[in-house]
Every structure is written in structure tokens, then in C-alpha cells.
């Protein structure tokens, strides 16, 4: 029963062109920003503070800009796509299909689980394809990744998808109309890119805002993808003779290094934060479902 319900939900997401295209708005905005000016801005920032004697190869610069682009793209897509694919649970309520499902003896928990797993599958499919395309882009422009970087990047994508799906499941549970779908969809699509540091590095925000953002778990997801997508290119810079201090400063500026009240958050801690958040959000989703079911009875 669960398998067929999941199949229904996944099929509906991919057949609904509106939902599918909405999911791609944020990555599309990001691509346009990079193609028009962000790429050049970052390229200049990478070379601006270098000693005059050092000249970085074009391929390395492309690798750096590309690494930043794909890390932002993947960090933001994993969450926005999850939201859009999970809107199916709201749409079922808004158009009344949920009545047809609940009229049967199916357990409410089975229905909730089917939405969660379907959103997870749809988002994973899209984001893994996107990861493949991003890696292809890096291979064409400037490849400095090791096998472990790629594997870590895949792990980051999976964790971010789990995080995005769990977060959207909790938020979407409170929505019930097409208007609410549009409102939340617009807010998430336009806002998440900023607060997770995908459009602009968090380091460029005011100190107060940086402190607020350091409380958001998604920020550490972006930092993880950025670390793994740029590690190879940054290491190559060191080989090219760039001082380690300068590279650390660059890592700070690029959000590879994140600080929680002046204390640097290391990569294992970032994974810990992300995994703990996923577990907490799933637990909240289960509890909210149980509460809603009890109330409706």
C-alpha cells in the first residue's frame, strides 16, 4: 500500500509542471546571477588580494568560481525542491483529494509517511541529477576534486535533501490552501538563497545578521557543500604559492569557515548539527501528525 501511494505522489510531482518548474526557480535565479555578474565579482575577489608576483592560472580561477557556484546551487536546490515536491500534501488538502484518501481504512501515519518518502525520492532524484550536471560543469571548466571530495559532496546533498524534506514536511503540515502554497513557495524560493548564503556569502552580512544566521542549521549545510566543492581548488592555490594565511582569509570570506559566536565550527560539528536537526524535525513531524490525528478523532 505504502509503495503504491509513494509511486502516486512521485508521479504527480513530476507530472505537475507547475510544481516542478517552481522547484527550479531558485537554481535558475542563481545561474542567471552567476552568468551575469556574480561570477566576475568572485573572480575579481579571488585575485584582488593576491601578491603581485603570483598569477593564478585561468583554469584554477574557473575551478574556484565553479566550485562556489555549484555549492550554492546544490545547497539551495536541496531545500527549495524539497518544499515544492512536498507541496503535494497541501494540494491534496486544497483540492479535496485528501477526502478520497481518508475515506478508506488507510492509516493516517501511512499517508504522512507516503508524502515524506515521495518528497524525499523526488528531491533526491532532481538533486542527484543536478549534482551530476554540476560535476560535469566543473570537469569542463576546472576540476580539482578528489574522489573523497565527490563522495562527501554526495553525502552533503543527501543530508541537505533529508533536512529540506523534514523541514518542509513540518511547515507544510500547517498549510491547506493554494494561496498558502503560493505564499510559502515564493518566500522559500526567494528567501532561502539569501539566508543560507547561496546568493551572497554570509561573511558579507552585518555582524548581527551573521549571528542570527549562525542559529539556522541550513547554513552549515551550505558550508559543508562549499568546503567539499572548493577544497581541491583552494589546495591547488596553496601549491601555487599562495600563503596559508591568505587562503584562510579566503575561506572565511567564502563561508567555508563558519563561526558560532566567534568560535569556529569544524566540519564534524557541522555534520552533527545537520544530522541532529534532521532527527529533531522528523520527530516533530511524527508528533504533529499524531496530535492532528487525535484532534480530528
Amino acid at each position: 500500500m505504502l509503495k503504491i501511494l509513494i509511486k502516486r505522489n512521485v508521479k504527480l510531482f513530476f507530472k505537475d509542471k507547475g510544481m516542478f518548474l517552481t522547484a527550479l526557480i531558485t537554481p535558475a535565479i542563481l545561474l542567471v546571477l552567476y552568468a551575469t555578474f556574480l561570477g566576475n565579482v568572485y573572480r575579481d575577489s579571488f585575485t584582488m588580494n593576491l601578491p603581485e608576483t603570483v598569477k593564478l592560472p585561468e583554469k584554477l580561477l574557473d575551478g574556484l568560481v565553479g566550485g562556489q557556484l555549484i555549492s550554492s546551487l546544490l545547497a539551495v536546490s536541496c531545500v527549495t525542491v524539497a518544499f515544492c515536491s512536498n507541496f503535494l500534501m497541501v494540494q491534496d488538502k486544497a483540492i479535496g483529494t485528501i477526502k478520497d484518501l481518508r475515506i478508506s481504512p488507510v492509516k493516517a501515519s501511512t499517508l504522512s509517511l507516503s508524502y515524506y518518502i515521495a518528497a524525499l525520492i523526488s528531491t533526491l532524484l532532481i538533486c542527484l541529477v543536478a549534482t551530476g550536471l554540476c560535476l560535469g560543469y566543473l570537469a569542463a571548466t576546472g576540476w580539482y576534486l578528489s574522489v573523497s571530495d565527490v563522495l562527501y559532496l554526495l553525502l552533503d546533498v543527501v543530508l541537505l535533501v533529508l533536512f529540506g524534506t523534514a523541514l518542509s514536511s513540518v511547515i507544510n503540515l500547517f498549510l491547506s490552501s493554494q494561496g498558502q502554497i503560493s505564499a510559502v513557495g515564493t518566500i522559500v524560493s526567494s528567501g532561502y538563497g539569501f539566508i543560507c548564503g547561496a546568493y551572497m556569502p554570509i561573511s558579507s552580512f552585518s555582524p548581527g545578521l551573521q549571528k542570527v544566521i549562525s542559529f539556522l542549521p541550513g547554513t552549515y549545510g551550505t558550508a559543508l557543500t562549499r568546503n567539499h566543492a572548493m577544497r581541491g581548488a583552494l589546495a591547488e592555490m596553496e601549491t601555487e604559492g599562495i600563503p596559508a594565511k591568505l587562503i584562510e582569509e579566503l575561506k572565511d570570506a567564502l563561508d567555508c569557515n563558519l563561526y558560532f559566536f566567534e568560535k569556529q565550527v569544524r566540519l564534524p560539528a557541522m555534520y552533527g548539527i545537520l544530522v541532529a536537526t534532521i532527527i529533531i524535525l522528523i520527530a516533530v513531524y511524527i508528533l504533529l501528525n499524531q496530535f492532528q490525528n487525535k484532534r480530528s478523532r
Binding site: 504527480l12 505537475d16 483540492i95 479535496g96
Partner: peptide, 10 residues
């Protein structure tokens, strides 16, 4: 039901 509640896209 009074109005069809099947999935129109499927």
C-alpha cells in the same frame, strides 16, 4: 463525491 476528487494529472 459531489465533485470528482481523483488525480487529474494521472
Amino acid at each position: 463525491f459531489q465533485d470528482s476528487v481523483l488525480d487529474k494529472a494521472l
